[in-house]
Design a protein around this nucleic acid. Structure first.
Length: 287
DNA sequence: AAGAGGCCCTGATAGC
DNA sequence: TGCTATCAGGGCCTCT
């Protein structure tokens, strides 16, 4: 599920529903996420008010009333579900994203507020929660991450300097969070299609104009995806509303052997593995 | 230093 | 039906 646009959608929903709410109770059913959830996690969060919810790259950041933070990363398969109490004071299922039905298995973390709770579900457990003591530690945690495509610092100067004498291909660079943060495997293929650059191109051979396109279309594709509510791949069945719509707009991702959607291009979309990740492109109009 | 590859984990699907 | 193999939207670590 989650690249920058999907995480942004989750964040926006969380802002609407739990900003300024007080944490009443925390239940951890499985501590073994990507990083082990520490023993003091529940106690640390309890009685704090969520003062602010923001996003950086693919991380959701919660400011707590005690001056500390906690961050959530959704990994490959993490989803956050909102459960509300009905008028009989019982919890009923609705959701923020991806599925309106709370799955039966893999509900690892539950954070309860007055009248509602959020449930973190993650079959593959590549996601994680982390307590961050203060602002300094937060900055340190994100220090290794490059700019988001939306940042001014993601400039022509920045990327030309970065690409100089580098032999790695452009697809790998778009996935490299040290270079640019927030792009994942779906949007990397999509962005390169718009740029008309083949994913295997060595970055040192990119022209100035192509670098400009990378900046422009990285912003454009992500913005459009956010507008459409993100992408919902492999939806759970019984999805009612709330799922993203951007997957309907994919030009290349998961379109192997289908016709290229570029105007007047007769190509068929190809699928190749680039450093073990599936990559989609048209080898006629992308060069 | 840069780049390639393995690994963490479960579930869905394809092929026999 | 039931097995096995492969693949899935991420990122960290190790090795060369």
């Amino acid at each position: 599920m989650p690249e920058l646009p999907e995480v942004e959608i989750v964040k926006q929903s969380l802002v609407k529903k739990i900003k300024f709410e007080k944490i009443k109770k925390v239940i951890v059913r499985n501590r073994n996420l990507r990083f082990k959830i520490p023993r003091n996690f529940e106690k640390f969060l309890k009685n704090n008010i969520i003062k602010k919810i923001s996003r950086f790259s693919k991380y959701i950041v919660f400011n707590l009333s005690n001056g500390s933070f906690f961050i959530i990363h959704l990994g490959m398969s993490g989803t956050i579900h909102l459960i509300k109490k009905n008028k009989y004071n019982k919890f009923t299922n609705t959701s923020f994203y991806s599925s309106s039905i709370l799955p039966v298995k893999h509900n690892h973390v539950e954070i309860q507020f007055e009248g509602l709770k959020i449930v973190y579900n993650d079959p593959r457990r590549f996601g994680f929660f982390k307590i961050i003591k203060d602002k300094n530690e937060l900055l340190k945690k994100f220090a290794h991450l490059g700019p988001e495509p939306f940042f001014r610092s993601f400039s022509l100067k920045y990327i030309s300097r970065y690409f100089k004498n580098k032999k790695k291909n452009i697809k790998n660079f778009l996935l490299d969070q040290k270079f640019v943060s927030g792009i994942g495997n779906i949007y990397a293929s999509e962005i390169l299609f718009f740029c008309k650059i083949i994913p295997s191109r060595e970055v040192m051979k990119l022209s100035t104009n192509e670098c400009k396109k990378i900046i422009y279309f990285s912003k454009l594709v992500l913005k459009k995806a956010i507008k459409k509510g993100g992408s919902s791949i492999k939806n759970f069945k019984n999805t009612l509303g709330n799922e993203g719509l951007f997957q309907k707009e994919f030009k290349v991702y998961q379109r192997e052997n289908l016709s290229c959607l570029e105007h007047k291009c007769n190509g068929k979309i190809k699928k190749r593995f680039i450093s073990n990740r599936s990559t989609f492109f048209c080898d006629i109009c992308q060069k």
